[in-house]
């Protein structure tokens, strides 16, 4: 009996460590998607930094010439330009910095700490990274991105790396859905479109239904919606999509872990992840979180 218990315990341990490895490898896979996007995103601020620095070097030469000529008004105008460029250099330096920090945050295992987070900025960052990541891998990929960020949201207490991963998973799935060969309706006017929306939802009477998943004291929740105009999800598939390892994608293209991990993360935040889909029309995933 004791030996049996020991055996079971050791098997359980092995399973747990395998699971942790799988989760880590899913994380690294999505990091892989991101690196190309990150490289592209950093390129823009770096170009600005290099360019404005070069312009400033030229301007300083001109400044010295104007000093020689005692042309005070020209000196003032040039030094004003130098100062403006300097602030651009600082701005784009910080922008590159934030991108690298975001990347590190994503690969680091989350410390599980909740912190007040700007949901709109988080969503936008992952949208851009995912888009450029895919574009860099598949040059023919193109999609219209629509964003609608509710400015009233403010800061929400979440584990940013975790919710970031959920958003990334949903966006990656949406891009895949709109890029499947041949548009869903086969018409030539089809424009692959992925939209991300955020919403602060106020409930005047605290009337969010009996099984509401937000904290009891909360009368507000936020929603992050990721939608696409892809093929939609057939009924036969719909009740399986949140199961671990369920995938309809060819080997190597899907792990089937994205939605199940996303579901767990949102649950751990006291929120809800739901899906609305219509075959031939598209799919919308909605994350709702207590505000």
């Amino acid at each position: 009996m004791l030996r049996k218990n020991k055996e079971i315990e050791s098997t359980l341990n092995k399973l747990q460590s395998t699971q942790a490895q799988l989760i880590q490898s899913e994380k690294m896979a999505s990091l892989g998607e991101l690196t190309a996007g990150i490289a592209h995103e950093i390129q823009n601020p770096l170009n600005f930094i290099n360019n404005f620095a070069e312009v400033n070097a030229e301007l300083i030469d001109e400044l010295n010439e104007s000093i020689e000529k005692n042309d005070l008004s020209e000196v003032k105008s040039i030094s004003g330009n130098i100062k403006d460029n300097e602030s651009k250099i600082i701005f784009h330096g910080k922008r590159a910095d934030a991108i690298v920090k975001g990347m590190l945050q994503h690969s680091r295992s989350s410390n599980g700490q909740k912190e007040p987070t700007d949901i709109n900025a988080l969503a936008d960052e992952y949208l851009r990274l995912a888009y450029h990541g895919l574009r860099a891998k598949d040059k023919t990929f193109n999609a219209t991105l629509k964003t609608e960020y509710d400015p009233a949201i403010g800061l929400i207490n979440i584990v940013p790396q975790d919710i970031g991963r959920v958003i990334l998973n949903l966006i990656t799935n949406a891009f895949y859905a709109v890029s499947t060969p041949k548009s869903p309706k086969g018409d030539l006017t089809y424009t692959p479109t992925v939209s991300i929306k955020t919403n602060l939802i106020k409930s005047p009477s605290g009337d969010l239904g009996a099984k509401r998943s937000i904290g009891d004291s909360g009368i507000e929740k936020i929603e992050i919606s990721v939608s696409d105009n892809g093929p939609g999800i057939p009924k036969s598939v719909l009740d399986k999509i949140f199961q671990p390892f369920f995938t309809t994608k060819p080997t190597g293209q899907g792990t089937g872990l994205g939605l199940s991990l996303s579901y767990d993360i949102v649950k751990a935040h006291g929120g809800e992840l739901r899906v609305e889909t219509k075959e031939g029309d598209g799919t919308e995933f909605i994350i709702s979180l207590p505000a």
């Binding site: 600005f48 360019n51 404005f52 312009v55 301007l59 403006d84 460029n85 651009k88 784009h92």
Partner: peptide, 9 residues
Amino acid sequence: DVQILFEQR
């Protein structure tokens, strides 16, 4: 910022 950059360049 492309505008400022071009105007300066």
